[in-house]
Design a protein around this nucleic acid. Structure first.
Lengths: 201, 201
DNA sequence: AAACATATGTTGACGATGGCTACTTGTGGA
DNA sequence: TCCACAAGTAGCCATCGTCAACATATGTTT
């Protein structure tokens, strides 16, 4: 008779709870060095319970990374005000949205691109999801080229330039390597501007 | 009488051996999940011996990261053919040198920017070293502005743009997210070109 | 030359982790 | 009603990082 009234033998939705708890801990520690056992402890279940829902720790991390990419994609698709407004505004908006997502979820963002998130097995899914998150960007680039606002270059190259820029700036910012006092208050906007000018015709 | 003739009680230069071994394992596994004990094993010493030279595992990682930044700086300074040659060539040379370093030492590169490399204590050194590695880039940018080849913008912003671009592309490449079949064969050069055009006057 | 302080290695232990197996307890369909 | 199966538990194992106590070289002082 170990169980309280509040917690019956079967948790009900342990899988969801585990994911939520892990996300919360990720947010606290900004590093994914949380332990499976600690998650189980917080969820109020035994230390082996999570293994009924995830094959191993890497699987949990991989799933979290997938969720992260979905959220990122959503964040990028969101504040794109359709085809109204100038391309430049849309571009800056998307860039800032990307940075906002990364800096608001530093732990998640790092996890998404971490080798620890199970980079061995069918992580193809992860890669696919990552590239899918870039689709709003590709759409924006194609629109720009169609308008004639952007130079008519290989879109994939431009995509690589933008994504690389965003990804790098995001990680450097998360790591505290782009502190305003070292690199200027609006270095981020300046960097975005430089990139934009490289894209524009 | 445990000791062979070859291995006396005192190793001689264990600290160096540990670092070398760790670097080698970093190169093999492409992840810094090697264990202190495995290093000791390979070095042929007891599992606690490393603690006479490094306070803890994080200290070892931090020192390796430091070495990494020094090597990166060296790699960037190296193939810069002084003030001869066009700025454009120098820029592309440096960009490719950066990518070459990162892709040739994926594990090391990730470690350098990893939170696991002891981001708590006097990691100020790490940050300083990281920024120091960018000095060759800053010099190049200032030269370009002086020549009038580059737009007269805040150098720190341009630095952020370049570093962000390089860092992001490097990590995405290491993670296999910029596969040629997905993003074009010469996406890297295209991205560099886009960046360059954003910098040029 | 003898004695000692110190740097360097070794041994054994502790707590904690990820992961596995065997067992228990609910739950829903024949 | 009964039973197969999902979901949770208890306990074990190898391993890890780290620490304290001990052993052994090295070199400095007298």
């Amino acid at each position: 008779m170990q169980h309280t009234i509040d917690r019956p033998y079967h948790h009900g939705d342990l899988r969801r709870t585990i994911l939520d708890t892990a996300m919360a801990m990720l947010h606290e520690d900004r590093g994914w060095q949380f332990t499976l056992r600690e998650i189980a402890r917080r969820a109020g279940v035994s230390h082996a319970a999570p293994y009924k829902h995830f094959a191993d720790k890497a699987s949990l991390l991989a799933e979290m990374a997938l969720i992260g990419f979905d959220r990122l994609r959503e964040a990028l698709s969101q504040d794109k005000p359709d085809a109204s407004g100038s391309l430049r505004d849309a571009f800056f908006g998307m860039g800032r949205a990307y940075m906002r997502f990364a800096t608001a979820n530093p732990g998640l963002y790092r996890l998404m691109f971490s080798a620890d998130a199970g980079r061995q097995p069918a992580d193809v899914h992860l890669d696919e999801r990552a590239l899918a998150a870039c689709e709003p960007l590709i759409a924006l680039l194609m629109r720009g080229q169609a308008e004639g606002t952007l130079r008519p270059r290989d879109v994939r190259g431009q995509m690589a330039a933008c994504w690389g820029q965003m990804h790098g700036l995001a990680l450097l910012t998360i790591d505290g390597l782009l502190l305003p006092e070292k690199v200027g208050a609006d270095a981020l906007d300046n960097a975005l501007m430089t990139l934009m000018e490289g894209l524009e015709a």
